[in-house]
Design a binder for these strands. Structure first.
Lengths: 175, 175
DNA sequence: TGGCTGATTGTTACAATATACCATAAGTGG
DNA sequence: CCACTTATGGTATATTGTAACAATCAGCCA
């Protein structure tokens, strides 16, 4: 799996953050912003951003790439001994607060890049070659889908919307 | 998990097949149609619908409900001893031919209800209480999504679009 | 402070899902 | 028939995730 990033068409960007972050961006800002946002969210909901939860979130935000649960487990276990249930509980918590997303296609987790919007599921472009992910802005439930669901009496709770394919760089390198 | 079905709004239906099939429909027709379609598809692509693949498809089409791999394995093992790799190979084959879908949210497999359309990923409403699934007509990749992907140079290969929630019956029974 | 209470984490064990790898068999074209 | 490709068998193991119960921690109030 190759490792690289691409910059999006400017008018597809949001608040200056490219969908595929460029490799030379000041990443510590992303991580700090995510942590601060997490603190705010927890405080406003009367929830506790405990050490485990914070460290888990920090570890996920080491990069913009998706991370597997057992990789996280290994990394976090360097500092503190940690068993799977503890980590999964932290992951579920963070996901419920909309601070991270779980990518079902690749069984991995990634920090939420658009946490400003109301609690949401995201929609993602996932490169099957280099694993890079872009979280698309906007809601994954289209009006048409919502209409169909409503006509069936179906109440949508959450969405899993993931598009697998190849990013520009991977296609260029070996089309 | 409760077991039931709902009938869709007529104008959301396709070729007379409700999105949530009614419990009293002539299901053997669905199964037969699926098997015949599978035979046609394989023949036209020069692929072999072997005994294992056919039996796997038949077993999946016992109902319109999603089935877990290891449940299939147990059922198929009644007739023939079967190890996981053999079953997974058959499942991968059937999925690649667009004959079944893999539901990532629930780690299960279901027969494709709209096999007529070109090789496609589907989009699904999945009830988290009774496990009933509706495969929505239409393509899961909207023009907007396609536009964004194109502008990023991202080539979408396949989509996972699943909406989890509660179906009408489950909401009525215990809202 | 000290104890109560609910939330959080620790720990063990195990369930559930999926694949690597190599051997064997079955179909296919010469 | 042979050589070749495709498909299946079978063992073992990797990977992902959870159940159940014990221990601990944070906040609160007498």
């Amino acid at each position: 799996m190759r490792d690289h990033t691409t910059t999006a068409d400017p008018d597809q960007q949001q608040a200056g953050i490219p969908l595929f972050p460029s490799p030379d961006h000041a990443h510590h800002r992303c991580r700090n912003a995510a942590l601060q946002h997490a603190a705010r969210v927890c405080k406003s909901h009367g929830l506790r951003l405990t050490r485990l939860r914070r460290q888990t979130l920090e570890m996920i935000w080491k990069s913009h790439r998706p991370v597997k649960a057992y990789a996280l487990l290994a990394q976090l276990s360097v500092q503190r001994k940690l068993a799977p249930p503890s980590l999964y509980r932290a992951l579920h918590f963070l996901e419920q607060q909309g601070l991270i997303h779980r990518l079902r296609s690749t069984r991995s987790f990634i920090g939420c890049s658009h946490p400003a919007t109301t609690p949401h599921s995201g929609q993602f472009l996932i490169c099957i070659r280099c694993d890079t992910v872009a979280e698309l802005p906007g809601l994954p439930i289209t009006p048409g889908t919502q209409r169909t669901a409503t006509s069936l009496g179906f109440a949508i709770d959450r969405a899993t919307v993931e598009f697998l394919g190849q990013c520009q760089t991977c296609r260029t390198l070996a089309p």
